[in-house]
Simulated scan of single mutants.
Amino acid sequence: MAPKVWLITGSSSGFGRIMTELVLENGDICVATSIEPTALSDLFPKYGKERLRLVNTDVTQVDEVALAFSVAEQAFGHVDVVFNNAGVLLAAEVEGTPEDRAKDLFDVNFWGNANVLREAVRFFREVNGPERGGKLIQVTSCAGISTWPTLGYYAASKHAMEALARTIVLEVQPEWNIQIMLVEPGFMRTPMLNFEFHNKLAPIPAYATPAAEQTRADMVGERIKGDPQKAMELVHKVAQREKLPLHLPIGADAVDLIQEQVAELTRALDEWGSIVKDVVFAE
C-alpha cells in the first residue's frame, strides 16, 4: 500500500510533534507546518525530503496556509490526511482577561483553524478529487462542548470551532468523499498546558480565593493524568479506519465533562420541553 501524505499544523510540540513522529514511524509522509519548523530539524536527517517537509506556516495568515498545501501538492501530488491542530491556551477568569489577549487566542484557535479547514476541504475536492477524497482531523477540546473555570475564552474558541466544523460536515457533498473527525481531548500533560498555566494571568481580587487557586492548581503538572502520547496513538489508529467517527472524546475527564453537559441539557428538556416547543403560530 502506498504511503499516505499527512499535513500537520502546530507540529513543533505537543500533539503535533507526537503525531508527526507517529506518521513517519508508521511509514507515511508528513508535511509538518509550524511557526517554529526548526524544532523538527532533528527528524530530517532520519527521514529526508522524500518523507518529511518542514514548512514555516502561521495559520492566521491565509496565504501561508495556501502555500503549505501548495508545497504538499508540488512535492507529493496530494494530501490524504490533514491534522488541524495549531492552538494556544490562556488561563484567566473572563473578567480578568484583557481583550487583546482574548483576540489573539481567537486568531489562532478559531480563525487560524478555520483557514486550514476551508483550504483542506477545497484541496480535497479540487486537487485530490472524489476518487481520493480526504480526511480532516480537527483537534478541538472537551472544553468545546463543556467548559471549566478560567478557560472561558479558550472554551469559547473551541465551541466556535466545533460549530464551524460541524456546519462544514453538513455542507460537504457526499460525492466529494471528504470525512471530518472532531478530536475532543480532556486535560493532557503537554508542554502547552504546563507552560501556559505556569505563566497564567493573575486573578483580579474578587477571584483570588483558595477555591479558585485550587482550580488552577488542578490543571498543571502531575495532577494532569492525560497522556498525550497515548492520546495521539489512539487518534492515529482511528484515522486508519475506512469510516471516521464525527466525535472522538479522549480521556476520562473528557467523558465525564461531556456526560455532565448531556445530563444538564437533558434535565432542561425534561423540565421545559413541553412548554418551550409551544411557541408557534396558531394554525
Rank of each mutant, 00 (worst) to 15 (best):
G87V: 08
N109L: 07
Q229Y: 10
R17E: 14
N177Y: 02
V55Q: 06
G96K: 03
I275M: 12
Y207W: 06
K237A: 11
L90V: 09
A282R: 15
L265V: 14
G273W: 07
G16W: 02
P191A: 11
H78Y: 13
M192I: 15
D256V: 13
E50R: 10
P245F: 05
C142H: 00
F44V: 08
Y153K: 03
E171M: 02
N85W: 07
V23Y: 07
T9R: 06
Q138K: 09
T215E: 09
V55L: 09
P98L: 08
L89P: 00
V169E: 13
K243G: 01
N84I: 03
D100S: 15
E264N: 14
G87S: 11
K277S: 14
V279P: 00
R17G: 04
D58R: 04
G10I: 11
V79S: 04
D42E: 11
G87P: 05
E175Y: 11
A143V: 02
P191H: 07
L265D: 10
T266Y: 09
L54M: 11
A263H: 12
K277V: 14
G221L: 09
A114R: 10
L193F: 03
K4Y: 05
M1A: 11
L136S: 12
V169D: 14
I35R: 15
G129K: 12
D104G: 01
E283S: 13
S70A: 12
R51C: 09
E271A: 15
I180T: 12
S157I: 00
G144K: 06
E184N: 14
A86S: 15
P205Y: 01
Q138N: 13
P45A: 07
G27K: 09
K225W: 10
V279Y: 14
V121Q: 12
R125Y: 02
R118V: 14
S146Y: 04
R118H: 15
G251L: 07
G77C: 04
R118C: 04
A165K: 09
A102R: 01
D58L: 05
V5A: 01
L170N: 13
E184R: 07
R223M: 11
K200D: 03
I180S: 12
F195T: 12
E25V: 02
L257Q: 14
D28C: 05
I137Y: 08
V139T: 13
A92V: 01
G27S: 07
E25P: 00
R223I: 00
Q74A: 14
G273R: 08
C142I: 04
L67Q: 14
W176N: 06
E260P: 00
E233W: 06
A239Y: 08
L246Y: 13
H198M: 12
K277G: 06
T33N: 02
T60E: 06
